[in-house]
Nucleic acid binder design. Structure first.
Lengths: 117, 117
DNA sequence: TTTACTGGTTACTTTATCGTTACCAGTATC
DNA sequence: GATACTGGTAACGATAAAGTAACCAGTAAA
């Protein structure tokens, strides 16, 4: 349901989660990093996301000004993605999150809540 | 499906998202903040999450050592939740995320991707 | 005796998100 | 002519996540 009136609706954390809080977006941003990468490379690196969902999420990230999409008029098509300045500001924050997780779990801890992928 | 072998599985960002990347967890952590709050207060402040899901998410956060749950032997029952030291380390990072969002959207921008709540 | 309170639990339903499959187009390669 | 390439799109199906509704228990209040 689409409720417009509730207490937490406009709290900053809720809005932030709406923008980048989906399952894949932080991982996509993290995968792109400071580079310019092609769609196929992102897809190969991420390995398990479907092409359809990756396309959808990249579109939303582009719409939100987090990711820049460059189309080269070639065949077969070549499209490169990179983070905008706005997107680049997220990287250190995401890195802090991953360092927090690593500090508390290490890289290969068996006790991690396993990703549902 | 539960796939055990893929490229991005053990990347730190994926593991981090598995731990706190669900829709509600960052908002719960943000709502608790530095205080000790009762279940009913968290629920009232968040406003739209169901009791069942709030209970479930708090349980997982407790299991992951992010949230501390204190039961007082009273009737009707009184349970207070607070962040553990591990959980408190997340707060500044979540605050950075919300500041990033506010910097780029402001508090009431109509252009935000609306939370699907 | 009935209602209210709190913080749950459970079975089932609904919604959101993700994935599958087939298709597209235009060049290059075989 | 068929296949391969890339980066998509669309319709449909599957799964995960969230929500609903009813229930629980034991005191207190009405």
């Amino acid at each position: 349901m689409d409720r417009d009136i509730f207490i937490c609706h406009n709290c900053p954390m809720t809005r932030t989660m709406a923008t980048i809080g989906t399952k894949w977006k932080p991982i996509i941003i993290y995968t792109i990093g400071k580079k310019k990468v092609r769609f196929g490379v992102i897809h190969a690196k991420m390995g398990i996301i479907s092409k359809k969902v990756l396309t959808d999420q990249l579109r939303e990230l582009e719409e939100d000004g987090i990711v820049k999409r460059e189309v080269f008029k070639e065949l077969p098509p070549r499209v490169e993605y990179s983070l905008t300045p706005k997107g680049l500001e997220l990287l250190p924050i995401l890195n802090m999150l991953t360092r927090w997780n690593q500090k508390h779990h290490g890289n290969t801890s068996g006790k991690d809540r396993k990703p549902k992928l």
